[in-house]
Amino acid sequence: MALGHASPNFKDLSAELFAPVRMRFSPTGRQLVTASFDGTVCVWERTADTVTEWECYATLEGHENEVKDACFSASGEYLASCSRDKTVWIWEHLEDTDEYDCCSILNDHTQDVKCLRWHPSLDLLASGSYDNTICLYRPDPDISDWTRVAHLTGHESTVWSLAFNASGSLLASASDDKTVRIWKFTPPEQPSAFSGTDGTWTCVTTLSGFHTRSVYSVDWCHVTNLLATGCGDNHVRVFRQTQVESASAPSFEKVYDDQTHTQDVNAVLWCAQEPAGHNATARILLASASDDEVITLARFQEMGPSNCV
C-alpha cells in the first residue's frame, strides 16, 4: 500500500517515506499515520482544506525494527503502534504541546506483533501476533499504565488482521490458519467502572472451509454489518451475519466472492456513508489492494454487491 499509488491529483508522499507498510486516518480525517519498515511511525497533518497539502509533524521513534501497524483510537487521544520487536507502544496526544508521548510499552506477545485495531468507541486496543494469539488492553488509572485485560488463544497460526463490529461486541480475527474467528464480548457479572472492557471474550464462530490460503485482512462495515476478507488465494469475500447480534452463536453466510485479483489480496477496507435522508440509500464501497499492484473498488448496497467499478 505505497502512497505512490495515488493519482497525480493527490500529493505523493512516497519519496519522503521509507517503505510504508500500513496507514490509517484519524477519526477527523485531518491526520494520517504511517507505519514504516525503518522502525518509525509518522503522523501527517492536512495543512489546508485541499487534500494535496500534507505535512509530517511528528516522527515517533522507539521500535527496534519494522513497524507493522499503527492507528488512532476512536477519541483521537491515543495512537498505537506495533512491531516485529514483539512490542505494542501506546502514544498519548498531549493537547498543550501538540506532541505524542509514549505512555506504555506492552510486552505481552512472544513474537512479531502483526496488527492492531481499536474498539469503535472505547479506549480498548486489540493486537494480533505471529505467536497465534490476540491481546486486549485498556488504560489502568491505578498504575498510570496500560494493562492487558484479555488473551485470546485458539488460532493455529499467525493472526494477520483484526476488526470490530459497529458496537464493539464482536471481534473478527483473520489468520494464516485459513480461518476467520469471531469473538464475542460478555460483560462481567459484577458491574464496575471497567464493565465495558473487562469482561470475557469467547470464540463463538469459526469461518473455515472458505479460504484456501492465509487470510491477510478483515474489515467489518459499520453501516451494513458486512464482513469482508482478503486472502492469499487471490479472493475477496464478503460475509453477512444471518442471526441477530444477541444470539449466542452468530452465523455467517458468504454473499460475495470475487477473484479478479491475480495475486495475494493484502488489504480490504470498507468506505461507508450513512443514508443522507429517508429514501436515500447508503453509499458503500469496498476497496481491496493486492500484490498484483491493482486496487479494486466494488460498490455494495445494504444487502449485497451491485456492481464493480
Binding site: F37, N65, E66, K68, R84, D112, K114, Y130, S157, T158, D176, S214, D264
Partner: peptide
C-alpha cells in the same frame, strides 16, 4: 515452515 511461509519475514530477511 512458518517462517518460510510468512512473506513479511521473507521480505525483511532480504532487506
Amino acid at each position: 515452515n512458518k517462517q518460510l511461509s510468512d512473506k513479511e519475514r521473507v521480505a525483511a530477511a532480504l532487506e
